[in-house]
Design a binder for these strands. Structure first.
Lengths: 283, 283
DNA sequence: CAAATTCTTGTAAATTTTTTACAAAGTGGA
DNA sequence: TCCACTTTGTAAAAAATTTACAAGAATTTG
């Protein structure tokens, strides 16, 4: 496994820290990269605290000591080099630009990975495996995610459809039963039409798996909430990173279900691939 | 900046090393990962040399001292994780499963990032920025990617559509002109119908940007090829990682074009966001 | 509101770890 | 074999980290 996101751990633990430890934490977050070549005395001086406080800070975030802290931090930064300075400037070259886009995507994937609610993923996989019909609902940017998800579940030989039209959603939702599952996808977690559909599904006693930000109405309303809190590095555009995170969560569900279905499914997929071959160019 | 691959530097310098320094070098190469948590005394003992010899070894390969060596090594190892055993076993728990899915996605993103053809990305951004119409073509799993891409370009106020039906593709392709651009997306790079559409576009003197594996017919036929060679960790399923890589490349193009469009666009996006607010639930 | 308790922080000392200085051992050429 | 030079290890010094403890702040309780 890759090193967990140390910077994320630091952010999470700041509230429970002592005042002077928090000073160190803030210094580190301000410029993680600079820490790597500092000694304990330098950091103590810069943060205006004593050396033992720095050690206490290291222990507080789960490291064995100062060297261990530095090493973990260095490893995280090496894995995603431009952490903390990902904002795209107008002056960036194509090289810098593409690196930033890839790095920020990696960053948010790691962040989401470390905050997964495994219990709910497990529940979701179990439920999907036993489901009658599986429907995917999403609007706007999430419509493409829903379509992608539907395509994957279809390949697993699961009866699945995808609706990104509120009327079709409602009509279909009304026809669901208690063994059916709906996966509701939303970047904002506040789309009113989606909430309406969710309620309709629940009225029919269907199960709703929500993929949305924590504490959002969609997450709260869902029976099983898979929460995603990827900060978007590129604010003004349509969400980029969080959408990739959504897809990856769906991948996890897909593979989880496939694992449960076992060998039986494997044969089916092989046959499917053979079918596709005829559509291909062979030179 | 530090040399990219420390282990490579070590290999290169072994011939010019003293006998006991070479002992250390071999120990390090044998298991680089293990070095990270050792102290100088441990390494000295394991290599059967004295501690100063270890320090001399560190200096010989261009490091400032022992700590510097350890840090550099750790960084290299973190940056290029052993692309090893990610295959999912039937016995995997949900935790292991989701970690593997996320990690393998991260791995392929990093791999693709390091193999990007920047010149072509640059060309593509330039072309897209000047384009009249932009169309996205893709079938199967790539249809969702195309839909997602269309959605993003639409937000950039670029005249864009998406077709995942061969007839519509052909009809539309025939109506394109030389200032128009088509982005053709394919996981396999060998879909015959897509190749046909590409040829039609080129007959009309339109530009085709292909997102497909290296050396594939689609890549070869495209005017600007953006090649993606993500190994799929989960063989039997529909492609997972390479699709994420495709999306991220498209993100790069999107941001690149947005950057070129500048402030003008920023206002437009703000207005768009305000428009969407009315569709949201506010509690 | 003050006394007592607990929690936080820094000082100084101890320990660990790394680095340097130097001397011993080895190597090769005359 | 002897001399000059290189290589390597020992031991001491220096540097860096960690611990122990006490002073001071904050908080609770009578």
């Amino acid at each position: 496994m890759k090193p967990a996101q140390l910077t994320q751990v630091i952010v999470d633990k700041i509230p429970s820290m002592r005042k002077s430890e928090a000073k160190v934490a803030n210094l580190v977050l301000q410029n993680p990269l600079a820490m790597v070549e500092k000694r304990i005395v330098d950091i103590a001086e810069d943060a205006d605290v004593s050396e033992p406080t720095v050690v206490r800070f290291c222990r507080a975030i789960g490291c064995k000591g100062f060297q261990d802290f530095k090493l973990s931090l260095a490893q995280q930064l090496a894995a995603s080099p431009s952490f903390g300075q990902i904002a795209v400037k107008d002056s960036d070259s194509t090289k810098e630009l593409s690196q930033k886009v890839f790095d920020s995507t990696v960053d948010s994937l790691l962040k989401v990975r470390d905050n997964l609610n495994l219990k709910n993923i497990d529940k979701a996989i179990r439920k999907l495996n036993e489901a009658g019909r599986v429907e995917f609902y999403g609007f706007g940017a999430s419509a493409a995610v829903a379509a992608d998800a539907q395509h994957k579940f279809f390949r697993l030989r699961i009866n699945s459809v995808c609706y990104s039209d509120p009327h079709l959603q409602n009509m279909s939702a009304s026809s669901l039963g208690k063994e059916d599952v709906v996966i509701a996808i939303s970047q904002s977690g506040r789309t009113q039409a989606l909430l309406d559909s969710i309620k309709l599904v629940q009225k029919q006693r269907g199960t709703v798996i929500g993929i949305a930000p924590s504490f959002s109405p969609v997450a709260k309303q869902s029976d099983i909430a898979l929460e995603i809190d990827a900060e978007e590095e590129f604010q003004i555009f349509t969400p980029l990173s969080s959408r990739i995170a959504q897809l990856t969560i769906i991948d996890t569900l897909t593979i989880g279900v496939a694992q449960k279905k076992g060998d039986d499914l494997r044969d089916h997929l092989k046959r499917l691939q053979t079918g596709l071959k005829s559509l291909r160019c062979n030179h």
